[in-house]
Amino acid sequence: MYRVLIVDDEPNILTALRRNLSNIPPSMLDGERLELIPANSPEDALQLAVAENFDLVIADLRMPGISGVDLLAEIAARQPYVARILMSGYADLEAIITAVNQARIFRFIPKPWNDNDLRMAVVQALHYRAILLENQRLADLVRAQRGQLERQDAELRRLEMEHPGLTRLERDESGAIFIDEDDL
């Protein structure tokens, strides 16, 4: 189940988006379904984002009180891995630049939108987010393993200090230790 928060001050946009996105076939979403959660105002959206986690937030740019950019930036501060899409009926270059730089949005979708483009954007945003999470998981794993390796290294160094040459002993197949006669 992917949880998608949709924010627009225009209720008819919310219902149109719900209709549009609920038709994405699960096969395109790794067999998952979308749960669409509408919010009619940026305040409602923030409240929801404090209480629950989302996989994706789609927000309108021009809304009363808080702009879509500020809203997405605010939600991203709480949930760094939430994917972010911004929509707008009109945006100048400046608005889009701040959206990319401040809210680090994944996509900008103009209104009126193309239904297929929007669905593709949602699918790709969720994939992108999955890849980010996977990267993070792998990075953590590497870090943890490296930590373990470092502990082993340190132990070996300690043994070497106590018994020089100990860590460089060669063993034969049976595990017996070779002792080089020159060493003696």
């Binding site: 946009i13 149109a16 021009r62 707008s88 239904d115 929007l118």
Partner: peptide, 12 residues
């Protein structure tokens, strides 16, 4: 903005 919003949802 006022025009593109309704056109957006009608189109969709």
């Amino acid at each position: 903005h006022e025009i593109n919003n309704p056109i957006g949802y009608v189109h969709s």
